[in-house]
């Protein structure tokens, strides 16, 4: 019963917002606007609830002595970002202290983690070749081909590489990507139809 109410609510909201997109009607527009505002409010509430849940969970782990260092790192990290912005007299997200935390801590940390992907992927490729040689070799041949095609070389060889790269992107990569998108859309439509027709609970 609860599943049907949820499904009916989602379907009704979706249909109203879709109808607002198709039909120009002020009353329908105001209902759709109200529902969109509600979704925005729910998203903000979910973000705050998620943060509070994280604080409670790691506070409890710290108090009970479970992975104290990890939990302390999470709590201190959250405090470092939140306190300068929420402190009395602070101008919020654009306060100098918050800007410093973002520029001097967050951005370099995220960029460093992202940069680590390069050596980690290479190390993973080496391990993958030892564990699943054939499949990994196929994947790495593709990666090596892409690297060669994107080499920043000038002159005639550079133009030739760029034109081959353009063909690879426009034909095989685009075909696979569109196939994936069509597949995802078809599965989404089927799942939505199952929910609307009440067939979703049969497998449960």
């Amino acid at each position: 019963m609860r599943r049907s109410v949820n499904a009916a609510t989602v379907a009704a909201v979706g249909i109203i917002i879709l109808a607002d997109l198709i039909v120009a009607n002020p009353a329908l527009g105001s209902v759709a606007g109200f529902l969109t505002g509600l979704v925005v409010f729910l998203a903000a509430a979910a973000a705050i609830a998620g943060s509070l849940s994280l604080v409670v969970r790691h506070g409890s782990r710290f108090a009970h002595g479970i992975d104290r260092v990890g939990s302390l790192a999470v709590l201190v990290g959250m405090a470092l970002v939140l306190l300068p912005g929420l402190a009395p007299g602070s101008s919020g997200a654009d306060a100098p202290a918050v800007r410093w935390v973002v520029a001097a801590l967050l951005a370099p940390l995220v960029a460093a983690i992202f940069a680590l992907l390069f050596p980690l992927l290479l190390a993973a490729a080496r391990r993958g070749l030892r564990l699943r040689g054939r499949e990994t070799a196929l994947m790495l041949t593709g990666a090596a081909a892409v690297l060669v095609l994107l080499l920043p070389i000038g002159g005639e060889p550079g133009v030739w590489l760029a034109s081959v790269a353009g063909w690879v992107q426009a034909v095989p990569v685009a075909a696979v990507f569109r196939g994936l998108l069509l597949g995802v859309a078809a599965i989404g439509a089927v799942t939505a139809a199952r929910i609307l027709l009440g067939a979703d609970g049969i497998d449960d």
């Binding site: 490729a125 790495l140 041949t141 690297l147 060669v148 920043p152």
Partner: peptide, 23 residues
């Protein structure tokens, strides 16, 4: 810097080729 990008890409290619050949 295109030179730094080229060096990084060549190193990646070298590691991939060396790993593949070793395997």
């Amino acid at each position: 810097s295109d030179a730094a990008i080229l060096v990084g890409m060549l190193v990646a290619l070298g590691v991939l080729i060396e790993s593949g050949a070793g395997s």
